[in-house]
C-alpha cells in the first residue's frame, strides 16, 4: 500500500462542450455502495439548466444537418473511446453500485449499444420513410426529422447502460439533449461526458447535468424551448411534474421507467422514432 495521497476529482457539469462548475457554486457528495464518499458533484441550478438548454438548441440544427454517415461515425467513435476506458468504467461502477461481474456486463453492453445505434443513423430513415401513392399528379414522400431538443431524465438503475440507451437513440436521430443524471450515480454520467467530449460529438449536442432532479425537473418540463422529455427515472413526483407541465408547449413525453436496460431487447429503432417527426412533402409532377 502506497502512502501516496489520491487525487480526488470534482465532477463538473458538461454544458455546450465545456466542463464547468455550477454557476451557483453548490456541490453535493455522492456516496458509494458502502456509503463512503464517492465523489463531489456539482448541484446544477436552474440557470445551469437554462444554459444547457440554450447550448442544446444552438447545437441541434448543425447536428441534424450533418450527414447520417457522419453521425454514425461519431457514435461509433464514442464506442471506441468507451472501450478505451472500459476498465475505468468497470471500476467506477463496481465501487459505486455493483459487483465486478455485473459492472463488466454493463460496460460491455453500453459499448455494444453505442455500436448498435451508430449503425442505425443511416438506416432508420429508410425503414420509417415512405413514398405515398397519392391519387393526384403529385410526388409525395414522408421522412423522419428530429424533434429538436430533448430533455432526458436518467434512471438510477444501471446508470451507465441506462444513460447510453437513452442518449444514443436521441442523438442518433439528430436531436440534441440535456441529461439530468442519476443523483447517486452522477459521477458515471460525468465520466460518460468525458467520453462524449473526446469523441467528436459537437459541443452542445449532449449536455450532462448532475444535481437534485426534484429541483430541475420542474424547469426542464416547463421550459418552452425543450421539445420533448424522456423520463426513465422511477420517481412518481417527477413523473407527475412532467405530466403537468408538458402541455405548456405541447412537449412530446415518453416514460421509459420499468425498462430493464440490461436486456438485449432494450434497443430498437422505435426508440429513435420516439423523438422523430414525420415530414411529408408534396410536389406536382409535370413539365
Amino acid at each position: 500500500m502506497s502512502n501516496r495521497l489520491n487525487v480526488l476529482k470534482t465532477c463538473k457539469l458538461y454544458i455546450g462542450g465545456k466542463f464547468s462548475r455550477s454557476e451557483s457554486e453548490h456541490y453535493f457528495q455522492a456516496l458509494d455502495k458502502k456509503q463512503k464518499p464517492l465523489a463531489n458533484l456539482c448541484r446544477a441550478s436552474r440557470k445551469d439548466l437554462r444554459n444547457a438548454i440554450q447550448a442544446a438548441r444552438k447545437a441541434q440544427a448543425d447536428w441534424a444537418g450533418r450527414t447520417a454517415y457522419n453521425r454514425g461515425q461519431i457514435l461509433y467513435r464514442m464506442a471506441e473511446m468507451m472501450e478505451g476506458r472500459r476498465d475505468q468504467f468497470i471500476a467506477e461502477l463496481e465501487r459505486a453500485a455493483s459487483s465486478k461481474r455485473r459492472a463488466e456486463n454493463e460496460v460491455d453492453l453500453a459499448i455494444d449499444r453505442l455500436v448498435h445505434y451508430a449503425g442505425w443513423t443511416d438506416k432508420y430513415p429508410a425503414l420509417f420513410s415512405s413514398v405515398n401513392p397519392v391519387a393526384s399528379p403529385h410526388f409525395n414522400f414522408s421522412i423522419p426529422e428530429p424533434t429538436g431538443v430533448v430533455g432526458i431524465v436518467a434512471p438510477d438503475d444501471h446508470a451507465l447502460a441506462g444513460l447510453v440507451s437513452l442518449i444514443a437513440p436521441v442523438i442518433a436521430g439528430g436531436n440534441s439533449c440535456v441529461v439530468l443524471s442519476s443523483e447517486k450515480l452522477g459521477s458515471i454520467a460525468c465520466t460518460l461526458a468525458e467520453v462524449i467530449h473526446s469523441s467528436d460529438v459537437p459541443g452542445g449536442v449532449v449536455n450532462v447535468l448532475t444535481g437534485f432532479r426534484d429541483e430541475l425537473v420542474p424547469h426542464l418540463s416547463s421550459h418552452m424551448d425543450v421539445n420533448a422529455v424522456l423520463c426513465a427515472a422511477d420517481d412518481p413526483g417527477q413523473k407527475k411534474t412532467i405530466q403537468e407541465n408538458a402541455h405548456l408547449n405541447v412537449k412530446r413525453v415518453h416514460f421509459y421507467d420499468g425498462t430493464d436496460w440490461m436486456k438485449e431487447g432494450a434497443q430498437s429503432p422505435y426508440y429513435i422514432m420516439d423523438f422523430q417527426e414525420i415530414k411529408t412533402t408534396w410536389h406536382p409532377v409535370g413539365t
Binding site: 399528379p137 403529385h138 406536382p284 409532377v285 409535370g286 413539365t287
Partner: peptide, 8 residues
C-alpha cells in the same frame, strides 16, 4: 409555368 397548377 407549373403544368399541374394550370390544369387544376
Amino acid at each position: 409555368v407549373d403544368q399541374i397548377g394550370v390544369e387544376e
